[in-house]
């Protein structure tokens, strides 16, 4: 290639040659930014679902109540658990009462199971305290089917 046909170097108004883009650096910066944004989104999600909030604040509560059948009689030996935390469990006493501890605060889906069939109840668990849900009527047994 002759000198005449060689490409021109475009100079900036202050006489310096243009700054070349460092693509590698840009790529690394972009990656760091992406990871940061992803981390932020994940943390926001965890915060919103309550798990992180509970972990930070240590605000798991206690739920107390009684399980009764359609005749109003207490149901003994029913299993109480949570949809969001199946490891949190309790059983009802002969008088139908139960005490479920270590329950994350906020709205929860409480599952009562007796004779292999579960029924769910939406409850709201208060922060740092005992939430009384009263008498929960269990209607999943065969006598209530028809």
């Amino acid at each position: 290639m002759s000198y005449v046909n060689s490409p021109k170097v475009q100079y900036t108004p202050d006489g310096r040659p243009p700054e070349r883009r460092n693509w590698r650096r840009l790529l690394i910066r972009g990656g760091i930014l992406t990871i940061f944004i992803l981390g932020l989104v994940l943390n926001l999600y965890a915060f919103k679902t309550g798990n992180l909030l509970n972990l930070l604040a240590g605000t798991n509560g206690v739920v107390q109540g009684t399980i009764i059948n359609i005749q109003g009689q207490p149901i003994a030996g029913a299993t109480i658990t949570l949809a969001s935390a199946p490891e949190t469990q309790a059983s009802t006493q002969p008088d139908g009462s139960f005490n479920l501890s270590n329950v994350p605060t906020g709205d929860q889906y409480l599952i009562v199971a007796s004779e292999g069939v579960g029924q769910g109840y939406v409850i709201t668990v208060q922060t740092d305290g005992v939430t009384q849900v009263g008498a929960l009527r269990y209607e999943a047994l065969p006598e209530a089917w028809n």
Partner: peptide
Amino acid sequence: INGQEMSPFRPW
């Protein structure tokens, strides 16, 4: 839910 068979959807 979590292996627990729930009450059927109504009306059955």
